[in-house]
């Protein structure tokens, strides 16, 4: 099962990188999303997969009876998902506003901050 998940992680990250290499903002956004999910899945796999019960202590007991799944990777993933969600929603709004104000979603055409046709610097003091 670990092997299957490792291959899936690889696929996710490859797809994310492929989409990020595109010039269109929307594809880059999708790429970030897929890449982030791949990384989350990787953390999940890194915490070792078990078929044990969920890491919840039943009422009345001080600790769980028998083996439980490792709760730490799940906490890490939850944090990462929340943060990734916040970042993604910001980037989504940003891409939308950029599309409205710059009238393009192609990063090659976004040259306002770095003008492509800037003249050479003066050659003397």
């Amino acid at each position: 099962m670990d092997l299957v998940l490792a291959v899936v992680v690889g696929l996710f990250i490859a797809l994310g990188v492929y989409l990020l290499l595109s010039r269109a903002l929307i594809r880059m956004l999708m790429g970030m999303l897929v890449l982030g999910n791949g990384v989350n899945l990787l953390i999940f796999t890194a915490g070792r997969l078990t078929r044990e019960v969920a890491p919840i202590v039943p009422p009345g007991l001080e600790q769980a009876p028998g083996a439980i799944a490792n709760p730490l990777p799940q906490a890490l993933i939850l944090t990462a998902i929340v943060i990734g969600f916040a970042m993604f929603s910001f980037l989504l709004v940003l891409a939308y506003r950029a599309y409205q104000t710059l009238d393009c979603d192609d990063t090659d055409e976004m040259r306002l901050a770095e003008p492509a046709d800037a003249p050479n610097p003066p050659l003397s003091y």
């Binding site: 929603s89 910001f90 709004v93 939308y96 409205q100």
Partner: peptide, 18 residues
């Protein structure tokens, strides 16, 4: 609060609100 702000912001045309 945060998700309502984003959601309400995206529901307008100008994306204002963030």
């Amino acid at each position: 609060g945060a998700i309502s702000a984003i959601g309400l912001g995206l529901e307008t045309d100008d994306g204002e609100g963030l």
